[in-house]
Design a protein around this nucleic acid. Structure first.
Lengths: 356, 356
DNA sequence: CTGTTAGCGCATTCAT
DNA sequence: ATGAATGCGCTAACAG
């Protein structure tokens, strides 16, 4: 039926051990024998049995990349970049020592995040990359810390990309954290400099690090300008919701209801900002003439929005690629295992001084 | 060191076989024993060894989803929907009989497509879903057909989603093909009805089924209106390029150079259309007053474009979900294994009658 | 309903 | 540089 290593060995008139050695390449084999073996492999159309090989070797060539939302380019760009570094070799068609880089979509659900980690642990994954913000629920953090320790103990390399370090865990080889706080602060400073004073904030889902850090940056800038207000006032000008277009639309209407004199809206990310723009247009407001709008991430479509969206650029591709190299052991981890990744303000046309 | 099934068996005072049975759930076990075993599993924090289990059972719980570009929501939406159907159970955290739905990014490269299939074959994947258009190169088609046969022989379920059937192959359980030709035709008919006569076409990469079908639909509509022109004229009003923003931008400038009197531009997809819009704006042309623009796919951002983009809606989520169910054997394949998925014209604000 | 017995296909000692 | 032998951890008959 299915052709095995032994079949190849027989055809090449060598022992199974020799076939294994040429296939894995990490052992000296005479050129002539290697030649013969490879020919037999091609002739028989042999494909290594992954499970058997993983069982014997106690490691697999699977690398998992966890994302919160695979339909969001924010994650797609990072995941694609990581995959490029991991499975991006030439590709002979025969598939030699390649790793199998795969992305797993948690949908933002903590249960599914843990389930996927268990599944990857079960497969004895070579490495795992966790992308995007983390949930701040203490129970989940504890469960994640424990699970990642277990993975690390089993030899799996764990890398965080766009997610803050896990405090007190040595399971993680490297954490690449975006400077969401600094980016958020600079974005709001930009609006303040333009002269805005009443700024609404459409935040992401509660209990997420990304949400909190961006919001903290915003409030820090407001406070520094003496516009912080009390907690109640801050809450009044903040609406939370998922990272999607709909949320931006609805939250904007709500903010307008709460404070009709708003001159600017800061959104949790670019997708949300697009929803905000749609809501404002539907209300007959012109951007940026009547009201300014800003996003976060600088996804590819943001520059093409009308007007072009002011936002904060995150080097998603570079970060993803670096995470991929770290996972493969092809790059030295940053000092202390932690790197902060700069976020750059992109001032474009959707923000302008408020109407006099 | 690492805890095995035998350890669990010892702790629960049963045989390894019994533990295996409760873990796999597909065999009668006394409730009290099951209880004891599960407790032992939790106490020992046991995680099944995937490779060992796959080796013994000769199948794995891996399901691969191949996409051309993971950063493109077109694929992200389909892949996410498929994953929902495959790995979307409750999620106990303990991870029972779940499948591991995993997406692989080929980047549109035929070599990587084959490599990924080999890797999945090596893992003895339970199923494989191929999304998006296929390459039309005869050599690659032959290689793919052969590879998919090999996979099917090994028990892997193969499903095509958004890709035309593979002629003469019985390896594929089901093909869900979008009606790209019909959608393309209706889109151009819409423009013709508005009164357009000189229409430029920004096509996708050559040798791709999606590209060809959409273009054929366009040309069929033109021909039916007596505007087909000769081959040279058709070529003159068509520019090929990748499915990205940049391509739309550059191709639009090229089309304008070739034919300054263009009144409408049809783009290969929405992303390309956005690039086209940007180029037109940079040329000082107003949409749709000076020139109309249309896209394809109806991605989430298209309705928020300014002006809202006329396009063709593809039910990406529904198709992906259906592919997931087919891959899991949770839905009967369509008659003949082939289903055509309707594409619906979404006439919005980016198209209007040409200037008088 | 549960225990016993054999492999699954390969990587890796240890010899040679 | 190559061959022979052993076991990775689990599932699947087969008994009982």
């Amino acid at each position: 039926m299915t052709v095995t290593l032994a079949d190849v060995a027989a055809r090449a008139r060598v022992s199974p051990a020799t076939v294994s050695r040429v296939l894995n390449g990490n052992y000296p084999v005479a050129a002539s024998t290697r030649e013969r073996v490879l020919r037999a492999v091609d002739e028989l159309d042999y494909v290594l049995n992954g499970p058997a090989s993983s069982l014997a070797a106690a490691t697999s060539d699977l690398v998992g990349i966890l994302v919160n939302d695979i339909a969001d380019p924010f994650f797609g760009i990072m995941a694609g970049a990581a995959q490029t570094e991991i499975g991006g070799q030439e590709g002979t068609g025969r598939a030699g020592g390649e790793k199998l880089a795969v992305v797993c979509n948690t949908g933002g659900s903590p249960e599914r995040e843990l389930t996927y980690l268990t599944l990857l642990q079960r497969q004895r994954a070579a490495a795992v990359i966790l992308t995007g913000g983390a949930l701040e629920d203490p129970g989940h953090i504890a469960a994640m810390t424990a699970k990642l320790s277990r993975l690390a103990d089993a030899g799996t390399t764990v890398v965080l990309c766009g997610r803050p370090p896990l405090p007190g865990s040595d399971a993680v080889v490297a954490s690449l954290a975006f400077d969401n706080r600094g980016g958020g602060r600079r974005l709001t400073e930009h609006l303040l400099t333009l002269g805005h004073r009443r700024i609404g904030y459409v935040a992401g889902p509660v209990e997420r690090t990304t949400t909190r850090h961006r919001l903290e940056g915003h409030r820090a800038a407001m406070a520094a300008a003496g516009l912080g207000g009390d907690t109640a006032e801050q809450e009044r000008l903040t609406v939370h919701g998922p990272y999607d277009r709909r949320s931006g639309y609805d939250a904007t209407l709500e903010l307008l209801r709460r404070e009709p004199e708003l001159t600017a809206i800061v959104a949790a990310n670019d997708t949300v900002a697009l929803g905000a723009c749609a809501a404002l247009r539907d209300q007959g407001l012109r951007i940026p003439h009547d009201i300014s709008v800003a996003g976060f991430d600088d996804l590819p479509f943001s520059v093409d929005a009308v007007p072009a969206l002011t936002t904060v650029r995150l080097p998603l591709f570079e970060a993803g690629a670096r995470a991929g190299r770290l996972a493969m052991g092809n790059e030295a981890p940053p000092p202390g295992g932690i790197a902060s990744i700069a976020a750059e303000l992109m001032a474009r046309d959707s923000t302008a001084p408020p109407r006099a």
